Amino acid sequence: MEQVTNSPKLKLAIQKSGRLHEDSIKLLKECGIDISNGVNKLKADASNFPLEVYFLRDDDIPQYVEDAVADIGFVGENVVYEKKKKVDVVEKLGFGKCRLSIAIRKNETYSEASFLSGKRIATSYPVIVEHFLKEKGVSAEIHEISGSVEIAPGIGLADAICDLVSSGSTLFMNGLKEVETILQSQAVLIRNQSLTADKQQLLNRLLFRIQSVKKAKNNKYILLNAPNDKLDQIIGLLPGMKSPTVLPLADKGWSSVHSVLNENDFWNIIEQLKAAGAQGILVVPIEKMIV
């Protein structure tokens, strides 16, 4: 266990409730950082890492980081771009993925952004929408709404909306359809632009852990048995970190091959391995991956 001293602590702001909260806490736990926060507490200390965690409203996190009330924050990209605060995006965290999209009534036809010309658009993201319209050379009226944006067309408040979309089911239930994505978003780590050298060192240590967890999630550890006469062909299919580990089996003429596969290539390569003669393929999740 790391010794916690009176040296500086890194101050991290995360969402106190909502879609990013649980995944933020989960990521810290996967990084080996123990946070004990009671009900309704707005601040908690890590027991084994020089870290303080502040639980804040998602929309407020960029401001707190810019003002150095917090050194770093976990927040949605959509909020970073909407608030336009002076912070640096350091790392994409891989969770909270969604998209900010334009949606219109189901019975309407949308071919390009000019469809929005002269129309009323309801959104909680007026800055991003205004930038999108300006890029497209479209003049439209933006109505800023803090919540329940999807009901705006149904009650006559707007002709279209721009809102966060995950599955699209909420749009469907409100008689809308998604027609254009203007921003792909996920949780990111942001930092104050004037971190001290000590705080930056702590951030580097935290980033090392986060990146190790992310690499592990994107890869699988595989073990397989291969006939020696097909070994070169099978090894050629495995793009591991460096090269596969090959160990002789008690059964003469066979070897055990250990390697790592990227999640995106996994099924395609597994099929090729089987076709090349690999047997007894085992797939094991990786908890941490240090490269």
Rank of each mutant, 00 (worst) to 15 (best):
V149N: 01
G253H: 10
G73A: 11
G277I: 07
M173L: 15
R57L: 15
E66Y: 01
G168F: 01
L183M: 14
K220N: 11
M289Y: 12
G73Y: 08
L189H: 00
Y221L: 13
G18W: 08
N78A: 12
I72F: 02
S146L: 09
L164H: 05
A187P: 00
E271N: 11
E22C: 01
V79K: 03
K288C: 04
I161W: 04
Y125I: 02
V283I: 13
E180Y: 04
I234S: 06
I182F: 08
V260K: 06
L189E: 01
A216T: 05
A216L: 07
I222D: 06
D23H: 13
D232M: 10
V129W: 04
I121P: 01
S7I: 01
E263F: 11
V80G: 07
S111M: 11
L247C: 08
K242N: 12
A187R: 00
G147S: 15
V69P: 02
T109R: 10
V149H: 01
V90M: 01
P239H: 09
F49E: 05
V213G: 02
G118S: 03
G236V: 06
I281D: 06
G76P: 05
S7H: 11
N228D: 13
R120G: 00
A140N: 06
D71Q: 06
C98A: 15
N174A: 10
N174L: 12
Q272N: 11
N40E: 12
Q186M: 09
K252R: 12
N268G: 10
S117C: 06
L42S: 14
K217I: 07
P8N: 07
S243E: 14
D60Y: 08
D60P: 04
Q15N: 08
R205V: 04
R191N: 13
E22W: 09
V257T: 03
R57V: 14
T123N: 05
K84L: 11
S148H: 14
Q272W: 05
K29A: 15
I269V: 13
Q193P: 00
I210C: 03
D59F: 12
T196P: 00
K215T: 07
R57E: 15
F208N: 09
E52T: 10
V138K: 02
L176K: 01
R191Q: 14
I210L: 06
